[in-house]
Design a protein around this nucleic acid. Structure first.
Length: 269
DNA sequence: TCTACTTGACCGCTTCT
DNA sequence: AGAAGCGGTCAAGTAGA
């Protein structure tokens, strides 16, 4: 695939911005009647910012990871590490992938892991069927859609063999559909998705309390009496910055990669 | 005390040189 | 073929009920 790397795209865009800022500065200087000095200073400031971003991106690209032996790699040859990984497609066994607004699918899931995926600004959450102890080997991966942060991409692996157990539960009182959830160490995610697959109807899913926050207290108070686990549901919304939103909506690659390349810490000095 | 979540560590697969 | 990176899973620690 001939997709440009995030670094290359940022460099290109920033170069364009740099040129635009320079042009703007020229126009302001040549303006008649003369514009105020602060306007010219503003254009100069934009230019400086572009310069610094370009410098930072270039530096970041040059020392990023191994295998960057090609001197032209910054713009022409995407480093593998900067691209969304196409490595392991685990579970070659038939699985289906679902794009949905909610992670609720009618099954009871228990989260067993969370992983920051290379090239993705959203962590991937790993769930297995809560009835695993009864022999159900179904698992699923949940990750926020890059294109639509409010949506989820859910990949299912294995088949549920716990249908009976589940259908019995449906007679149980339905749990509240949402719990707020709390601590996380993932930065980008405001909170961790904690859906455990309560039997939600679409209408209920629409009522999910989507919260935007930094450190909501952990809340598992809303339990549902099930044979082997509680069931609760939470949806979260990441606190996307405007820039992040922009990038989410415009590129196939990932914001975090860009952030890493940018070395914002350096830019602030 | 029990249950579920978090998260660091490990394993094994994939890719690159 | 070996090295390195990455995704998936495990399990100890922790927190809430």
């Amino acid at each position: 695939m001939a997709l440009a790397t995030p670094t290359a795209v940022v460099l290109e865009l920033m170069t364009m911005g740099q040129q635009s800022a320079a042009h703007l500065g020229d126009l302001l200087r040549a303006a008649s009647p003369p514009v105020r000095a602060e306007h010219q200073a503003l254009a100069a400031e934009i230019l400086r910012c572009c310069d610094r971003v370009i410098a930072a991106v270039s530096a970041g690209a040059s020392d990023k990871k191994r295998k960057m032996t090609d001197p032209g790699a910054t713009t022409c040859h995407p480093p593998a590490a900067a691209m969304p990984s196409k490595r392991r497609v685990r579970g070659a066994e038939a699985h289906r992938e679902v794009h949905a607004d909610t992670t609720a699918d009618g099954f009871v899931w228990r989260k067993y892991g969370q992983k920051d995926i290379n090239g993705s600004n959203h962590p991937r959450l790993y769930y297995r069927c809560a009835f695993r102890g009864e022999g159900c080997a179904a698992t699923r991966r949940v990750q926020r859609s890059q294109e639509e942060p409010a949506a989820f991409v859910i990949a299912y692996y294995g088949e549920h063999t716990c249908g009976a157990a589940f259908s019995q539960q449906r007679a149980e009182p339905q749990p509240p559909t949402v719990v707020d959830s709390g601590s996380n160490a993932w930065g980008v995610f405001g909170a961790v998705d904690r859906n455990r697959g309560s039997p939600l109807m679409p209408s209920l899913a629409a009522e999910h309390d989507v919260r935007r926050h930094g450190e909501a207290p952990r809340d598992t108070s809303q339990r549902w009496s099930s044979p082997s686990s509680s069931s609760s549901y939470s949806e979260v919304e990441l606190g996307a910055s405007p820039v992040e939103g922009f990038l989410d909506g415009n590129f196939d690659w990932e914001w975090e990669t860009v952030v890493n390349s940018l070395r914002f810490g350096d830019l602030l000095h």
